[in-house]
Amino acid sequence: MTGRLHPGLIAFAVLVYIFLMGPLIIVIGSSLSDTTFLTFPPQGLSLRWFERIFEMAAFRRTMVTSFQVATLATCFALIIGIPAAYALNRYRVQLPGWLSTLFVLPILVPEIVLGFSLLRSVQVGAGLPVFSTLLIGHTLLVLPYCVRVISASLASFDFSIEEAAISLGSPPWKTFFTVVLPNVRSGVIAAFILAFITSINDVSVALFLTGPGISTLPIQILAHVEQFFDPVIASVSVLLMFLTVAVMAVVERTLGLTFLTK
């Protein structure tokens, strides 16, 4: 597939990739600076801003909250999303076509509108605690990824294998866990990862659903940047980039990264 590419086009693509990578490299560089203000190239190398993150209670607390919310929301979304994806594939005939659109709605509705509406109706209207509302918001936010990725895996699953197991006497629920689920394992892992990273990075939904003592890491970063302009934010950003690298390594091992272009 190595057709002749115009050298101008190649040069353009190189510039685009410099544009894509440059800012991230600058963030990494600034996080290592020894100065009390943000600067690039770094003046004097030090890791003290990484230590500083963990000395600040607000960052420690919001990091824990972000991880709790991301883990719980992803698990809830998988628990309700896997049966839904299964039903969409296995019982295609008896279910109406709009049902699969329904599960994509959380992507179609602007996140910021979802966040505000949850604050209005669920937190204030129904009186649910802040943390529960945040959890509901993030479960909704990641549900489309779970349903769609697992649906895609199930689309290539041969349901006659399941029927064979059942006709040989295996109970349906056991068949689901021993025959169906192992066959879509890579889809479940990919869904987990995409959902987790979406939740960890979310701003627009969490923006409205924070309360006394409860906030997520991205919201804390936004609040910090508005008051201080020190390298600690660059250090937190680098930690989040490490998380991204870890996620990419897992996706690469389970599915191959080209999965993300589909």
């Binding site: 991230l24 970063i221 989040l240």
Partner: peptide, 8 residues
Amino acid sequence: PLLTGVVV
């Protein structure tokens, strides 16, 4: 970059 958060 796509997987790195919007805030970062």
